[in-house]
Design a protein around this nucleic acid. Structure first.
Lengths: 239, 239
DNA sequence: CGTTCCTTTGAATCTTCTCAATAATGGTGG
DNA sequence: CCACCATTATTGAGAAGATTCAAAGGAACG
């Protein structure tokens, strides 16, 4: 396969690329993000709600970028206990964090529109484009940083703090973030398995925030009414 | 600076490099691990117990390999709550997982002998040696995988399971692992802040395992008496 | 040899879980 | 369009696990 090479690929400063809410792929003329190099090689796919993108233990043949919808990455142990590592939204990348086999599975929370890239192609492109390689490394490290933040949440925060942190984080990452309304495409059970709580505690804690007037529980999501109060509830972040 | 280049750098299969207990740097003749490329460029340093290798928020100028001793990576929030992300032992690498600034701090648990590498040098070496770049990526992904395992532990395991898992993991990673004796260079408080428990719960749980005959509490560590039982207590791993 | 830090152990408290019942929601087919 | 079913969410009461508070013993250090 012939792959377009490009000299003088600009090396961006670390951390220069934040998530892009309301992700829209750039045209071929302007390239703000090395990830756009991948764009033309992706296959557009639609995954039905509940379907697996990949399973834990599978060889990592593809990686993905979410264009629309939401995905969960799931770890299961023998006796059925579940930990959801991440919820991924439009614009997020997926499956880049496995060298050999996937160690978590990825499941569609809603109908999902994705771009699929063969891993081998991504690797060879990264070898040619230093900026892409760096960008992918940056992404891995961002995931690690997020994982550390989650570890702090799971190890040291109360149920109320976990819910508040979760809602604020999701609000910040949500693609169409305009007002304070946050869509929750996942079930209470999913939230519980992400935050290390039970369904009942999640439900009760959200209900309590609603009674306080901090949030309002709406259809398929919540609305942040008092961001200050919610932040105060959050228990802070690492450093 | 002149840097030795080497063609025909063999590309190892993913996951081919496990941790090397009782780490001994290879001579210049045989090279089993791409990380040995770094070896000659490292500065040997001794860090006193309790000293910081680096602080959260600092620009990541150096990265390290531990030759002797143990290190903790620490996250702190505003109100003093602490989460220890990892305990690192001889042979482990440190500080490679920060692109711009360190987001955790690293502190010596014991007197520590380390090799220190300037990050810029590591990056330029990685650019020349594909195998080193791949190895470093593999290491980042291993850290992420371990973080996911810890997230499962923090979110879904009981105190007893956390302690059992922790002891087994440490036993497996300990450099001089011969018999069942595991050195614990960290305090109960450190263990608590790693496992999301309190000092008292850690102490009680370890004492209970001692009364069961599963382990024996010895000076500066424990001894595994019944590995089967300890594994059964562990609550399993992801997948 | 005293001080400080770390560890252990006990008792009471509290947060979260478990069990249980009910209500709401969403999708399906008649 | 509505009735039915399965899934999801809410809420209450009691139980359990872990925390907090408190005190005392042990180890490490200068």
């Amino acid at each position: 396969m012939q792959i377009q090479t490009r000299m003088a690929d600009p090396l961006p400063a670390a951390g220069a690329y934040q998530r892009r809410p309301g992700f829209t792929p750039a045209g071929p003329g302007k390239r703000q993000d090395p990830l756009d190099i991948l764009e033309q090689f992706g296959t557009k796919l639609t995954i039905r709600r509940g379907q697996e993108l990949y399973a834990a233990g599978e060889v990592a043949v593809y990686c993905y970028r979410i264009l629309r919808g939401a995905v969960r990455t799931v770890g299961l142990n023998e006796d059925g206990r579940r930990q959801i590592a991440e919820f991924l939204l439009a614009g997020d990348l997926l499956g880049f964090d496995s060298l050999g086999t996937h160690h978590l599975s990825a499941e569609a929370l809603t109908e999902v529109l994705i771009l699929r890239y063969p891993r081998r192609l991504v690797d060879s492109l990264a070898e040619q484009h230093g900026s892409l390689a760096l960008r992918l490394r940056d992404l891995s490290l961002q995931k690690l940083r997020r994982a550390h933040e989650t570890m702090f949440l799971l190890g040291r925060k109360s149920a109320g703090e976990r819910i508040a942190t979760f809602l604020l984080d999701l609000a910040e990452r949500s693609p169409g973030r305009t007002s304070g309304s946050v869509e929750l495409p996942m079930t209470r059970g999913d939230i519980a398995d992400h935050l290390g709580l039970t369904i009942e505690t999640v439900s009760r804690t959200i209900a309590q925030l609603g009674r306080d007037g901090t949030i309002a529980v709406i259809k398929c999501g919540i609305e942040i009414r008092d961001r200050e109060a919610l932040t105060a509830h959050g228990g802070g972040t690492l450093h």
